[in-house]
C-alpha cells in the first residue's frame, strides 16, 4: 500500500511518514501528493500568529477541544524555530496540547523552521494538504513567535488570527506595520491581566484609522485561554470570517492567489535546476564569473549572455 492510500484509509503512521518525507526530500513526496490532491479543499485552514508567550499553543488547544465537542476533526501544525547554528530545535508547542494526544480525531505535528524566515516551515503548505486529504475538518497552523514581519502565514491560511497580550508596552506600535495588517481576527489573550482593555482599545482605534474601503473589519476578541474564557466567542468570530470569505467571493480570490504562487514556486524551482544543468554542461557559468572578477565584463552583461539562448522573439 502506498502512503497516500494509507492516509486515505486513516493510517496515522502513513500520515506522519509522508509529512517527514515532505520535510526531508520533498521531490520524493510528489507521487503521493498527486494522489491526495483531489481529496483536498475541504478543510478550513486557520493560522495563528503573535509574539512568543502570547498563548498561541494554549488557544489552539482550547479551540481544538471546543471543535471536538462539536464532533469536528482537527489537524494541528505547530512551528518552532530551528537553530541557525546547529540545525537543532526544541519543539515545545505540544506541551499545552497533550490532552489531545490520544484523541483519534486530532493529529498534531511539530515542525522546525529549518531556515525559513517567514515564521513558518517550508513544508507547512504540503502538510496542510496532507491533513486536508486525511479528512480533517479544521487545520490549525501555529507560527513561531513573531515580531514584525513574519507574515508567511497569510499565504496559506483562510483565516489568520493574531494574538496579543497586555504588558508588551509599545509592542503595538512596533508591530503595527507588518503582523497587525494580516489579522482577520484579533485575540487579546491573558485578558484578566491589567492593561488588556487598553490593548483592545488601541487595536480598535488602529482599525478606525483604516482609510481603505474594507468589507471586513477584524473583530477584537478577548480571551483567558488557560481558563477557557472567550473560546466559544473566538470560534464564532472565526466562523463569521469564513462566512464572509465565502459570501464575498474572497475565499476564491485568496485560494486563487495561493495556488498561483504555489505553481509558480514549483515552476521556478524546476526552471532553476534545468538552467543550472544546461549551463554547467557548457561550463558557461565559470567562464563568465571569471570575466566578471577580472572586470572584463559587468554582472548585468554576464547575465544577459547566459540568458541569450532563451531569449523570446
Amino acid at each position: 500500500m502506498t502512503l497516500a492510500q494509507g492516509i486515505l484509509t486513516g493510517d496515522r503512521r502513513a500520515l506522519a511518514r509522508l509529512i517527514t518525507i515532505v520535510e526531508n526530500q520533498p521531490a520524493k513526496a510528489v507521487p503521493d501528493l498527486q494522489v491526495l490532491y483531489p481529496h483536498t479543499g475541504e478543510a478550513l485552514v486557520i493560522g495563528i500568529t503573535g509574539p512568543p508567550g502570547s498563548g498561541k499553543s494554549t488557544l489552539v488547544d482550547k479551540l481544538a477541544k471546543e471543535l471536538r465537542r462539536r464532533e469536528k476533526t482537527v489537524g494541528i501544525i505547530a512551528v518552532d524555530p530551528t537553530s541557525p547554528f546547529t540545525g537543532g530545535a526544541i519543539l515545545g508547542d505540544r506541551i499545552r496540547m497533550q490532552d489531545l494526544a490520544t484523541d483519534p480525531g486530532v493529529y498534531i505535528r511539530s515542525m522546525g523552521t529549518r531556515g525559513s524566515l517567514g515564521g513558518l516551515a517550508k513544508a507547512a503548505h504540503s502538510a496542510i494538504e496532507i491533513l486536508d486529504a486525511a479528512g480533517m475538518d479544521y487545520v490549525f497552523v501555529e507560527t513561531v513567535g513573531v515580531g514584525q514581519s513574519e507574515v508567511d502565514i497569510v499565504r496559506i491560511a483562510d483565516t489568520t488570527m493574531v494574538t496579543l497580550v497586555p504588558g508588551l508596552g509599545d509592542e503595538i506600535q512596533t508591530i503595527k506595520a507588518g503582523v497587525l495588517e494580516i489579522a482577520d481576527v484579533f485575540v487579546v489573550n491573558k485578558a484578566d491581566r491589567p492593561g488588556a482593555d487598553q490593548v483592545a482599545l488601541q487595536l480598535e482605534m488602529m482599525l478606525d484609522l483604516n482609510t481603505k474601503e474594507k468589507k471586513w473589519r477584524p473583530p477584537v476578541l478577548s480571551t483567558v485561554a488557560n481558563a477557557g474564557e472567550g473560546i466559544a466567542a473566538l470560534l464564532e468570530g472565526v466562523e463569521q470570517h469564513y462566512q464572509y470569505l465565502h459570501e464575498s467571493g474572497e475565499l476564491r480570490g485568496r485560494r486563487r492567489a495561493r495556488y498561483r504562487a504555489e505553481i509558480m514556486a514549483i515552476v521556478e524551482e524546476g526552471l532553476r535546476d534545468r538552467l543550472l544543468t544546461f549551463w554547467s554542461g557548457e561550463g558557461k557559468i565559470n567562464t563568465v564569473v571569471e570575466e566578471v572578477i577580472a572586470r572584463r565584463k559587468d554582472p548585468y552583461s554576464a547575465a544577459t549572455e547566459l540568458l541569450q539562448p532563451f531569449s523570446v522573439k
Binding site: 503512521r13 517527514t20 530551528t82 546547529t86 505540544r94 497533550q98 498534531i108
Partner: peptide, 25 residues
C-alpha cells in the same frame, strides 16, 4: 547536537507518549 527535540513536559501516560511518537514520526 542538531536534533529536532519534541518536548512534551511532565506526567505523560504511556499512551500519550506512544501516540505522540507516532504522530511526530
Amino acid at each position: 547536537a542538531g536534533m529536532e527535540v519534541i518536548y512534551t513536559g511532565l506526567r505523560q501516560t504511556p499512551e500519550q507518549i506512544v501516540e505522540t511518537g507516532i504522530q511526530e514520526d
